[in-house]
Amino acid sequence: MKSFVLFFSALMVASILSTTTPQNAEAEAFVFTAIPDQNESKLRERFGKVAAYLSKILGVEAKYIPVKSYSAAVTAFRNNQVQLAWFGGLSGVRARLLVDGSQAIAQGEEDPVFETYFIAHSSTGLKASDAFPMDIKGKTFTFGSKGSTSGRLMPEYHIRKQLNAAPDDAFAKVGFSGNHSKTIALVQSGAYQVGAVNFQVWLNEMKAGKIDASKVSVIWKTPAYPDYQWSIRGDVNKQFGEGFSDRVTKALLSMKDPGLLAAFPRKSFIPASNADYQPILDVAKQIKLID
């Protein structure tokens, strides 16, 4: 009987402790996250550098927290568990709709004219063209993450417009690879015949020699649209002192270290505003990803 009482009281202690242990260890740090659009190791490397840079400039401990999905990034921003985030166009629009007073503060020089590449496996015989490749109809197709701008929103928009059908109806099979690196891998392996990928990731992997041009190639480039940006919560000034938001903006815009910029990869950061992303919001509403 002793064993019961001991066992039970031990479990009781564990339950009480596990629900009450102080969990606000990170409360004082300035925490940021990013949408997991690429391999995690790459993100850790990139944002580890950013965290060190921001800590130095801002004089506050800045910390990067990796998340497993686009929506987790948005939710963390919404719940004030991160105050700053590197969002894509769509996730940024979503996040700012959910958090009053939040602002897009900086974007890469390339981001106002971002593109999505449609890529195809060589066995499809599809060739690069300037016009939308109508022949992709009936093929198997993979997007990136469900919440991605370049991997989901924009390609779906163009598919609906050109093929006049929802992706599920236009293709033999539709998948969501999860991130851009995986989209490339899946199309290259032939798991999917066609895919839509963030052009920056494509160019970067090409440069890194990870793409076998005999197996996968670009068949179409979308018209330009605004994409990635840094967004910050409206209440950071309350938490970290007056003018904090401006200081973060300045820190991001004055990021000049080529190593840092190359990790994104962006040439430099330029100012951004919520209004810059109105086209994204319009498209998202049009294809009913946002009410």
């Binding site: 001991l6 031990a10 479990l11 402790l17 409360a27 919404r78 568990q81």
Partner: peptide, 26 residues
């Protein structure tokens, strides 16, 4: 082991790792 459960119970909650703070408003 049953004998070690008490020890685990006291120690385990401290090894859950840190996290964000919880806000009632959320």
């Amino acid at each position: 082991r049953p004998k070690l459960i008490g020890l685990y119970a006291i120690v385990a909650p401290f090894f859950l790792g840190g996290g964000f703070s919880i806000e009632m408003s959320n």
